[in-house]
Design a protein around this nucleic acid. Structure first.
Lengths: 317, 317
DNA sequence: CTGAAAGCGCTTACAG
DNA sequence: CTGAAAGCGCTTACAG
């Protein structure tokens, strides 16, 4: 309709620079007049690109319910959406996980962002071995040549420790995260290292509200006189706050509480939670960028990008 | 490799019944031996199917942060995943909303599930007019020939009303949802109708925690003696609970509180929230099924499916 | 029931 | 810089 070859039309649509101005204009006019939209399946058939990536979450319930999740999606969508790349939601449950690799092999997915993967999950290794573009949301606990993004976990925990000490707390304890995860380990390590006496009282939680409740009860049983608590997740802090209230402890007067994440749960707490903020949106956006870069340049060596956490002071400490 | 035509191979892969058993076996063996996976782009080019649908949410922040969201995704993924259909996340923000319709027209998306759409949003009408498969998560406030799924809102609110009355509450008030939405309207209507005196005290909220806080404060100012509150969302109930605590009211002894949704926020409340449960997973699964049906049968007339709510009794009332 | 052939709508060497 | 042609990997009438 523009009176040019289909090759030239294709070049204009794809913004190839070496096209004569008159042709370009003719094609653009024709596109505007007809409302032409390129067929992605036909394009995909030759370019070998799906323009779709998956956000892979552990079991459906756990992460979706995580107040963390919305911020991840928001950050990733911002960069993906701008490039017209689809964000497909998947989980690592038995049925879906098979789909992830088959979709990757069939070219239905260009790559994947793996969120909060279980340390024992073989999926990261599988994807690396298959040379598929992939980005992890945290340092893998077993060394793996894989690109990941993380927050400086030890520094974040140190921020919490220093704040408790600076505000005069002396009998400090922590509800740590699961010690089979890198985040759980690093936050405990960092917290201890920043305390005058690293021999701090601690219990292990699972990052969930329930485990925060259990952890705080255990702590209070053993050390009724404690005056400062660092919970390695906001959800655990929320659980801890409930227990403290039940036991008649005022927060922050009697016991100061610091959380970790600055998820939406932090503002739902009473009092609002002082917590260590991870720049989750930025991290997710960066994951998307790194993934897209890998898609464009398959031989990119693995990189790691570490973000700095920040202490957000609110009512609880 | 199986020694048959590519047409026969295609028939076996797609499960066409009229294929000789020997051919079927030969093809299956060849597939197993080679690890063959069909190329979805090539298939899509001729079938005109993307095998992908979008879950379209209002502005990124609002719904993603909604404790409701995980249950929606879970329900939809269960039926979509089983059929190998991708669930693509999108929003109605300026940039993405253009993508929704262009992806639909280009065949990159087979249909969309619209969640919590703003009543003024022109998107539903646009999609209906374009004859695209679409399912809404609630009754549209302006009549529109569109398929939707909803909970019986008035009955849900009536459940709350009857429970408050049955437990002896007499000075009852409600924090209603936004009156420009069907859910907000119906819950208020249903609540009033089930009360001995429909002339109940009420304030309007936005379904958010903040508006619950503001609403409860206003209510308490005007009616310090109230003994029962129905909040039209769990989030508003959570905000109300915080205000009641600040004002020294015990829940449920002094004031009973009932929420709506049974979202994850209900269990995070203190005390745990008595609330009206929407079967969200079931509703989302049904939306996915209805959408897929429309994709298969483009001329399906619009239907509506109403689910029954249930009162979940916990500590707050 | 099966196969040869056309065709889905693009992109991309390859000549010119 | 541009166009004719091949080809991406499937599905599906159409004969037989």
């Amino acid at each position: 309709m523009a009176g040019v070859s289909r090759a030239s039309a294709s070049r204009v649509v794809n913004g190839v620079p070496s096209v004569d101005e008159t042709i370009r204009v003719a094609v653009r006019d024709a596109i505007a007049a007809t409302g032409y939209l390129p067929n992605p399946a036909a394009r995909s058939l030759v370019t070998r690109r799906a323009d779709a990536v998956a956000l892979v979450l552990p079991e459906e319930g756990r992460i979706l319910g995580d107040p963390f999740f919305p911020r991840v999606v928001q950050g990733a969508m911002a960069v993906l959406g701008a490039r017209g790349v689809h964000l497909v939601l998947m989980t690592t449950e038995a049925d879906t996980r098979a789909q992830v690799s088959s979709d990757l092999r069939r070219g239905r997915l260009d790559g994947v962002i793996l969120i909060h993967t279980d340390p024992l999950d073989p999926l990261p290794r599988l994807l690396v071995d298959g040379h598929f573009p992939v980005v992890l949301s945290a340092r893998p606990i077993q060394p793996l040549p894989i690109t990941y993004v993380d927050v400086n976990q030890t520094e974040g925990a140190a921020l919490a420790a220093r704040h408790l000490v600076a505000t005069g707390r002396r009998r400090i304890a922590t509800i740590a995260g699961p010690q089979h995860t890198s985040a759980g380990q690093d936050r405990l390590t960092g917290f201890r290292a920043a305390l005058p006496d690293p021999d701090v009282v601690w219990v292990e939680g699972e990052f969930t509200r329930e485990s925060g409740t259990a952890g705080m009860s255990a702590l209070l049983d053993r050390h009724p006189d404690l005056d400062g608590v660092f919970a390695a997740s906001d959800l655990m802090a929320q659980g801890a706050l409930a227990v403290l209230r039940t036991h008649g402890r005022r927060v922050p007067q009697d016991v100061a509480v610091v959380g970790f994440d600055d998820s939406s749960a932090a503002l739902a707490c009473e009092p609002p939670l002082t917590t260590v903020r991870q720049p989750v949106e930025d991290m997710a956006a960066e994951m998307a960028r790194l993934l897209l870069h890998q898609v464009d340049h398959p031989d990119t060596p693995p990189t790691r990008t570490i973000f700095q956490p920040r202490l957000i002071r609110r009512g609880s400490a």
